[in-house]
Structure formats: C-alpha cells, structure tokens
Amino acid sequence: MASDSLRQNLIQVSRFSAVGVVNTLVGLAIIWGSMYLGLGYVKANILGYAVGLIVSFTLNSRWTFSQRAKEGGSTSATYALRFLIAFLIAWGANYMVLIFGVRSFNLSQYIAQLGAMATYTVVFFLLCRAFVFSAKK
C-alpha cells in the first residue's frame, strides 16, 4: 500500500535524523575534548569526523536501513566501501555549496554552512537509501 511505503519512508527519515543528532553530539564531544586535551583544531576535526563516520555507519547500517541491508545481501565490507563513497560525494556537495554560497553570493560563512549542511544531509540520505543500503529485489 502507498501508506505503508510512506510510513516506512518517514520512519527511515526519522531514524536517519536521530542518528545524525547522535553522530553530531559524539563528533563534537570528540573534537572539543581533543582540543581541550591539546590536540590542534584540524587534527581534532579529522579525529571527530573519523569517529563520526564509524558511528554513523554502525547506526545507519544496523538501525536506519537494517531491513534494506538484510534484503540486499551484500557484505559488511561492501556496505562500508559504499558508505565511504557516499560520504565523500555528500561532503563534496557540501563543500561546493559552501564555496559557491560564500564566493558567488557573498553569503556569510555561517549562513553558507547551513545550506551546505542541509545539502550534505539530503545527498547522504539519498545515497545511503539508493546506493549504500539498497535492497535488491
């Protein structure tokens, strides 16, 4: 039924959003904690995103897209590689929107970040759903 499909999509979006909140909190805690302990902000940022990538993959593969992953039958390594590719594409889209907003529209860097983050989230969700954890029927 169409309503069941809509319901499943809403559940996935809700779960993906919840994972995003958890992932953001974990990433920020790692970044700020590392900086507090004396690690430079660039290294702290890399560490936070590396840990966040692992947290995001674990939660999204086991909870957000778990049924789709079971139906797909791919290995964890395949999902991990696809997840990394999706992350890089989404981050690239994020970066392009950020740079375009600042340089072409003279937006504040803070405002441009909001558009870039929204772009990352939408692109990453769609790639996770269609490419990373796609169900093969």
Rank of each mutant, 00 (worst) to 15 (best):
V42M: 14
V42Q: 12
V42L: 13
K43Q: 09
K43P: 13
A44M: 11
N45W: 12
N45H: 15
N45Q: 15
I46A: 14
I46F: 11
I46S: 12
L47V: 02
L47W: 04
L47I: 04
G48L: 08
Y49K: 11
A50N: 02
A50S: 12
V51C: 12
G52L: 09
G52E: 08
I54M: 06
V55M: 05
V55Q: 07
V55D: 11
V55F: 11
S56A: 15
S56T: 14
S56C: 09
F57L: 13
T58R: 06
T58F: 12
T58H: 07
L59D: 05
S61E: 10
S61A: 14
S61P: 09
R62N: 14
W63S: 09
T64S: 13
F65H: 02
F65Y: 05
S66L: 11
R68K: 07
R68A: 15
R68P: 02
A69G: 06
K70F: 03
E71M: 04
S74C: 11
T75E: 02
T75H: 03
T75F: 00
S76A: 15
A77R: 02
A77S: 05
Y79L: 09
A80T: 06
A80C: 01
L81N: 15
R82N: 10
R82K: 14
F83Y: 14
I85A: 15
A86C: 07
A86I: 08
A86E: 02
A86M: 11
F87D: 07
F87I: 06
F87P: 03
L88F: 10
L88W: 05
I89F: 14
A90N: 13
W91C: 03
A93H: 05
A93K: 08
N94I: 02
N94L: 03
N94R: 05
N94V: 04
N94Y: 06
N94A: 03
N94P: 04
M96T: 13
M96A: 12
V97A: 06
V97L: 00
L98F: 11
I99Y: 01
G101R: 00
G101M: 00
G101H: 01
G101N: 01
V102R: 08
R103M: 00
S104H: 06
F105A: 14
N106S: 04
Q109P: 05
Q109M: 08
Y110A: 13
I111N: 11
A112C: 01
